[in-house]
Design a protein around this nucleic acid. Structure first.
Lengths: 204, 204
DNA sequence: GCACAATACCTCGCAGACGAGGTATTCCGC
DNA sequence: GCGGAATACCTCGTCTGCGAGGTATTGTGC
């Protein structure tokens, strides 16, 4: 099974959900300055169907990022209603976004919700070699032989289960894994091609 | 887009992650009495590769369930080390498990992590009609045309995206969805057969 | 015979999630 | 001319998540 059940479990520090939300905020603001209400709708579109974000979670998150100097607010007269706080990424905010995209916590790699959020903004990490490095971490995770159900140490396969619901979990997970592995290998190949072209043009 | 951005966001009340952990505890204890340490390894095997659970989250959760009368402890001399607290589901705990399996919060239906946990213990909800009702909720969710990325109101398809990473998200999500829809329809058909057999034998 | 890992459980404190509630403005239907 | 919805933001209190740390016992390698 090789499931580590020792101190700490993750080295990565607290705030796993917060990290995902903050990444989405930074990612959307990298495209264009937005005010909170529109940002909320963007986030609802991205992850809301799976995992809704409450207003009372979003607004404090914006404040945290402002306090950390990653974004600034400009109050504008409301176009249609109350005055709006237009949020703009600072240079430090842009750097932090790239750092978070390049060095995601392990949970960001393993949890599909987090991983999809990471992928949604991965293009902002302009360097193809750095992008490939992150995809390779996901590839390594998917290549580990893990199941959800075990007979002692041995992972069980769908065919070995009587329970139709547990069999469903494994069937679905396997289909996802197959599709993602194919996509990962394709995309890694083209990123590695791009990385070679970049390094060639730099040395010439 | 039809993403509701109004009061509340979810009616279901707090404790979404807690609900998932508690379900896993109740579900494992329904099979057999366990002590905390073994329970922790079971949970690590089930969801730990994706989303590890810290000791300092598990033990308080056990206490909550004990306080709520859903499980009882019996202290046993440690077989190999310190004394162990063997946890056993109460009758009320068994009923609560079934209630949670039959009436999951919406997040339990939409978030894959939660949904897989629900499926892992769905067999404890012995009634095939009740099981089918839960699967139908997931089916309805998957049949809604939702994307992660939009052009205004219109959901974008993988082919329309330039960004290879966002295209990946949609490709993977589509593969998952296809596999799950096939499994859901199969399983619903056989559950509905089982439900008919049950009701026939009850009336005869 | 001594350190170290594994077993087995616990508390504390900080920070985050979010429902409930509040405020103010504008637009639309009637 | 008024009620309701949408826009736009905010605070408060409660509960939860979890890293850091603590305690005690048994088994294993050197």
């Amino acid at each position: 099974m090789a499931v580590p059940v020792s101190r700490g479990t993750t080295v990565e520090g607290l705030r796993q959900n917060a990290a995902m939300l903050e990444l989405a905020i930074l990612g959307f603001l990298h495209d264009a300055p937005l005010h909170g209400y529109v940002l909320r709708r963007h986030i609802a579109a991205l992850t809301g169907h799976v995992r809704p974000v409450a207003e009372s979670t979003l607004y404090p998150a914006i404040k945290r990022l402002e306090k950390a100097g990653l974004l600034v607010r400009a109050t504008e007269p409301g176009a249609v209603a109350a005055p709006r706080h237009v949020l703009r990424l600072t240079e430090e905010g842009g750097r932090e976004l790239k750092r978070r995209l390049a060095e995601p916590a392990q949970r960001e790699i393993t949890d599909e919700n987090h991983w999809f959020t990471l992928l949604a903004f991965m293009r902002h990490l302009a360097d193809p070699a750095a992008q490939a490095a992150v995809l390779r971490r996901r590839l390594a995770f998917l290549e580990e032989p893990t199941s959800f159900f075990y007979d002692g140490e041995r992972p069980l396969r769908a065919e070995e289960l009587d329970d139709p619901f547990r069999r469903g979990v494994l069937t679905i997970a396997r289909a996802t894994s197959r599709a993602e592995l194919a996509w990962l290998r394709d995309t890694l190949a083209s990123l590695e091609g791009a990385a070679r072209r970049v390094s060639r043009s730099e040395t010439s």
